[in-house]
C-alpha cells in the first residue's frame, strides 16, 4: 500500500511538473505587456497544479487502474456478445 502511494505520488509529481510548466508558459504567453521576468500569477497557478497532481497522484493512479480494468472487461464482453 505504501509503495503504491509512493508510486502514485511520484507519477503525480512528474505529470504535475509537466502540466505546471505548460500552464506557466500559457499564462505568461497571454500576458505580453506589464509582465515581469517571472510572471507571479503564472508561477502561482503552475505551482498549485504541481502540488495538486502530487497530492492526488495515487488516487488518480487508482482510478486509472480501475478504469483500465473496467473498460477492458466491458470491451471483452462486447466482443463476446458480437461474436
Amino acid at each position: 500500500m505504501e509503495l503504491f502511494l509512493w508510486i502514485g505520488s511520484a507519477l503525480g509529481a512528474v505529470f504535475g511538473l509537466l502540466h505546471g510548466v505548460y500552464l506557466y508558459r500559457e499564462i505568461t504567453a497571454a500576458a505580453t505587456k506589464g509582465a515581469t521576468a517571472i510572471n507571479v500569477r503564472a508561477l502561482y497557478h503552475g505551482g498549485w497544479t504541481f502540488v495538486l497532481w502530487t497530492v492526488f497522484g495515487s488516487y488518480v493512479l487508482a482510478l486509472w487502474l480501475v478504469g483500465l480494468i473496467g473498460s477492458s472487461i466491458v470491451r471483452l464482453m462486447q466482443r463476446q456478445r458480437s461474436v
Binding site: L65, G67, S71
Partner: peptide
C-alpha cells in the same frame, strides 16, 4: 485541443472512462 486534453484522452483514457461510468 490542448496538450493536456490530448494526453488525458490518450494515455489517460481509462480515467475518462471511469469518470463517465
Amino acid at each position: 485541443t490542448t496538450p493536456v486534453e490530448r494526453w488525458l484522452h490518450n494515455i489517460g483514457k481509462p480515467l475518462v472512462w471511469v469518470f463517465w461510468r
